[in-house]
Design a protein around this nucleic acid. Sequence first.
DNA 1: TTTAGTTAGTTCCCTAGCCAAACAAATGTC
DNA 2: GACATTTGTTTGGCTAGGGAACTAACTAAA
Lengths: 403, 403
Amino acid sequence: MITSHNGPQPADFTDVRATNLAVVLRFVRENAPCSRADIAASTGLNKATVSSLVADLIDRRLLRETGLTEHRVGRPATMLVLDGSPYAAIGIEVNVDYITAVAVDLKGEELLNWRRSFPGGTSSAGQAVVAMAALARRVVSRMTKEARQVLGLTVAVPGLVDVSGIVRVAPNLGWRDADLAGDLAKALRDPGFPVLVDNDANLAALAEHRFGPHRNAANLVYVTGEVGVGAGIVLDGRLRRGGQGYSGEIGHIELDPAGPTCRCGRRGCLEAVAGIGAILAHTAPDASPSELELEIDEVVRRARNGERDILALLEDVGRHLGRGMAAVANMLNPEVVILGGYYVPLAPWLVACAEEEMYGRVLAPGGGGCRLEVSTLGYGAAALGAAARVLDSVDSGRLPAQR
Amino acid sequence: MITSHNGPQPADFTDVRATNLAVVLRFVRENAPCSRADIAASTGLNKATVSSLVADLIDRRLLRETGLTEHRVGRPATMLVLDGSPYAAIGIEVNVDYITAVAVDLKGEELLNWRRSFPGGTSSAGQAVVAMAALARRVVSRMTKEARQVLGLTVAVPGLVDVSGIVRVAPNLGWRDADLAGDLAKALRDPGFPVLVDNDANLAALAEHRFGPHRNAANLVYVTGEVGVGAGIVLDGRLRRGGQGYSGEIGHIELDPAGPTCRCGRRGCLEAVAGIGAILAHTAPDASPSELELEIDEVVRRARNGERDILALLEDVGRHLGRGMAAVANMLNPEVVILGGYYVPLAPWLVACAEEEMYGRVLAPGGGGCRLEVSTLGYGAAALGAAARVLDSVDSGRLPAQR
DNA sequence: TTTAGTTAGTTCCCTAGCCAAACAAATGTC
DNA sequence: GACATTTGTTTGGCTAGGGAACTAACTAAA
């Protein structure tokens, strides 16, 4: 795909080809099964060109012809689908108490989803690399056994990852300035596929953008609901990382100078008043990271039981969250803000208040068309997004080499 | 230029040509005077290709050869510069008490800058169209007299402009749902050039991005300092308007639930605690819009005199502004936030506090490399940006027809 | 069972436009 | 004056998209 960011690059024919291959690939992904004629009619490409592009994609085993034809008047069409079998993209998520690995095929279908407990909170980045490498090797060998070529691997990290892929700060993991991608690639001994690192919120946003129910929204924001609150921002169809890669740090937007003290030392941060910690501070002040999930389950149980104080607490958190999301909606005017992480199980008691608060504060008419939704991808969104990151580079025309 | 937003479009050779023409044009703009050989060496395009592209651009009178050559070893180079003379881009800004029109040539050099007083605050959109059309006609005829072809006209409006160019709400002007662009084009009777409308903050951001001292920053935010506070957001080298075009409405980010009441009815909005109105509420509570400039001059005078209460007031506003900018910097991680409008004359007393507050709140290491700067383009930034908007479409390869 | 009609996909040719290499032009240097 | 150096043009080759004609494979109707 021909892009023109910071200092436009000149284009040549290979760019045209790459762009058009990507166009066809994406069209088939969205509209499979479909015929060459469909592609030509919908994309505006010439029939001959489509035939040539499709042949190329079939050669590279990205597409496959199905025997099926449509029975209407005229010559029946040879239908095309994405070929799921020959490739895999791997996503890994490191977190405070576990490492998750997922692998997906080109269609985004999950091939495996493994979770290992891992004391991320008390391990060094080096130890994490060892653990990730071990897990990655097993995933890769499984993929190889299934005769799949691995297209790439991306690691999702809860922390600030700069544009060059260095993990600058990961507060919950206690890491600083770790070249996770480089070290992991080294540990995998020249794996033959790219190894990347990115922020978990960014990748979860990517997952929503590619697989979620709002995948046709070109502008969306994904909000993580963990102890930290972060956002991944997709504008005009692409992840926007900002100048150094640190965009989306909405957790420390100050909502109330008289609010509770945040772990960052200041007062009334979004994270302090609407993060998961703000709930647990009331219900289980001493919970360790590994007990988070259990504690949230307990909160859900009590909310279901209709316990007044819990409901009031959640309403309060919802309202604060809504105020934060109003800031996001006012600043970026996305089509949808998607709440993820622990906000998902708590959504039934949060969203109504949050929505009310948000819509009351968004200046644009009709709230700027911005909806507040709950993620349906579950806790694995970041890992899935990490895999989606790999697929994205295929989609933008960097196809695997021809057989 | 080949773009691939919302549903990628297929590319063909004309796109390659357009992309490369734009590459050459932009290179010459940045590096004039320069030779064909320079262009080839720096862009990576082939010498032959550059010659052909340059010939095309000279044909369209976008470039011009200067007789000047560099005297080094070897054949002297024919130097190329942008041809300023044959074209003009027009920008118009409507505001509460005046209409400004500027015209610039391809280099961005100001050809004229006219200001008419106009009671925007009490006029209908229809009346504004009449006034703008009258002004525009005079500008066009002046340009025609100078033998310049007008490439386009853009109107900057302080209000919410949707993606289709309709002015949805302009609070200070009292307009709603006005098709300014359509009506103005009609009033100009098929002018033969495109007429567009956009938000003033967006266009000022564009002006900074093209002409300002931070023009090489691919990620920047421009903040208007009027009674209303709005932002224009440039990410990855392009203006980001959000889903419906309403991005940048930072004026109503709530900073303090216990703060003063904002004109939007809520409390503690950025605009209410750090807008120009927050200053004038203390110094000249009954000032009319047309007296704003005078009142600000008075504030500046008193600050220069070292009046304690004024300095304290400005410090306070600066701190609130810094808190708002921290939210922006945390969310978007731009390379620079540029303060415009009335913040410019007040900057000496605002910026230090604002910076301190901002850096204290930005989570990213080193503040994410985000600087807080003051606009150097003056009050005309929006009008200039409106003209820049026209030049942008030339830059992206939509060249004026060949002679 | 033809025959006509319709749609799908391929083939052939043309053209745009990039690149590489050779070459011509214009200068400085020894 | 020979040679080196750099600029810009010319020529030819290649990639890849578009258009039109053609073949293929089916349905429908006579």
